[in-house]
Amino acid sequence: MTEHTILRVVAKLTIPFILLFALYVQFHGEYGPGGGFQAGVIFAAGIILYTLIFGLDEARRVIPPWAVRALISGGVLIYAGTGVACMLLGGDFLDYNVLAHKPAHGQHLGIILVELGVGVTVTGGMIGIFFVFAGRGRRREGTVE
């Protein structure tokens, strides 16, 4: 895609807005439609657009496989860690009321943390799935076919 200058320029201009919109959906999800899953898919769509325009090798340089695995496992740890923190504070798993002195504040904090965990996991999962499918049939250095 190096010869498609207009696509490259338009992608460079739109990708930051796609990622910013994903953050908006992520952190505004408890007030309206949206949340972790939708934000994760939108964020991954921005990375997938980058991959389609600039190539898989460049995308893997920007987001290496270890980072994709860290996103997936880190998101699960945030989600599960929120539940474990609730249990350690004397509540049930994901009983957000114990996260703050006022139950409403605990509910708000709990929802934000759980949705963040979901968003991070979905982002990593979608990027990982796309990288696997996009790399099918390609020979990588150091691998035996």
Rank of each mutant, 00 (worst) to 15 (best):
G117H: 06
T121C: 01
F17Q: 10
G90A: 08
F131D: 11
A100R: 14
Y50G: 01
Y24W: 13
A59Q: 15
F131A: 06
A134P: 11
L89H: 07
F131Q: 14
G125N: 06
V114H: 01
A134D: 15
A70Y: 01
F37L: 08
G29K: 05
A85W: 08
R8W: 04
V98D: 00
L23R: 04
T143N: 10
I112F: 11
A104C: 00
T14E: 07
C86A: 10
S73T: 14
S73H: 10
M1Q: 13
R60W: 00
S73Y: 13
F131W: 12
L71F: 15
A11K: 09
V144Q: 08
H105R: 11
M87W: 09
I112S: 05
Q38N: 03
G91P: 01
G142T: 08
G124H: 07
G106W: 09
Q38I: 13
L23S: 14
V114K: 07
A80V: 15
T82R: 03
V122Y: 06
L7R: 14
I112Y: 09
E58Y: 05
V98W: 00
R139G: 09
L116W: 06
V62C: 00
F131N: 12
V62P: 00
M1E: 13
E141A: 13
V41F: 10
E58N: 14
G34N: 04
P65M: 03
A85L: 15
V120A: 04
G40Y: 00
A22Y: 03
G119W: 01
E141R: 12
A70K: 13
L13Q: 06
G137C: 05
A11T: 15
T82L: 02
G75A: 04
G128R: 04
V10D: 02
G106F: 09
P65T: 05
P65I: 02
G106K: 10
F93V: 07
A104F: 03
W66F: 10
I18D: 06
I127A: 05
F37T: 15
Q26F: 03
